[in-house]
């Protein structure tokens, strides 16, 4: 595996085992989109700035454009496709985005959802974060429609709902 050829990788994506052959320079984002056809993960800047390609690697949010697919070998990747149920029923976070007009063109939405998901899951059962913490959690996700208000309201509502369920 030391020559610039293709490398076999095995990884788990959204709970399913996958296998692939990649060039070392193939990003995880491109592997997900082009090999696995999981096109929910969007590629914006390919430079780490925009956050549209955010996925979870071993449970922590990460830019899939700044990871080579070979780095994900043996690891667990979670993408936006994991959120909705098998019959298409929306995840509570997605529901909240819909109710609060948390998306306009939708390009940034997968990254916004995955960043918000990390916040929601890290706060399960704890104190709900204030607006500043919500904004900090998504500060690395750029919405070119500038629809941040609805996004923050959606995340806030999802967190409130969670707190309600926990009681």
């Amino acid at each position: 595996m030391s020559e610039p050829g293709r490398i076999s990788i095995e990884l788990t994506v959204n709970g399913e085992a996958h296998r692939g052959e990649v060039e070392p320079r193939t990003t995880l984002a491109d592997f997900l989109r082009e090999e696995l056809r999981l096109t929910g993960t969007h590629v914006g800047c390919e430079d780490g700035f925009c956050g549209a390609c955010t996925v979870h690697l071993d449970g922590a949010s990460a830019r899939s454009c700044l990871l080579y697919a070979v780095q994900a070998a043996g690891r667990e990747v979670r993408t936006v496709e994991s959120l909705a149920g098998p019959d298409g029923e929306l995840h509570p976070l997605q529901e909240a985005f819909r109710r609060n007009h948390g998306l306009q063109c939708g390009f940034c939405t997968p990254g916004m959802l995955m960043s918000a998901l990390e916040l929601v899951e890290s706060r399960a059962g704890g104190d709900p974060p204030d607006e500043g913490e919500i904004r900090a959690a998504i500060a690395g996700n750029i919405c070119r429609c500038t629809g941040y208000q609805g996004i923050v309201e959606a995340i806030s509502e999802a967190l409130d709902d969670r707190a309600g369920t926990a009681e």
Binding site: G48, G51, L57, A60, S61
Partner: peptide, 8 residues
Amino acid sequence: AHPAIRNR
């Protein structure tokens, strides 16, 4: 930077 960057 931001949380996703600091995670890596």
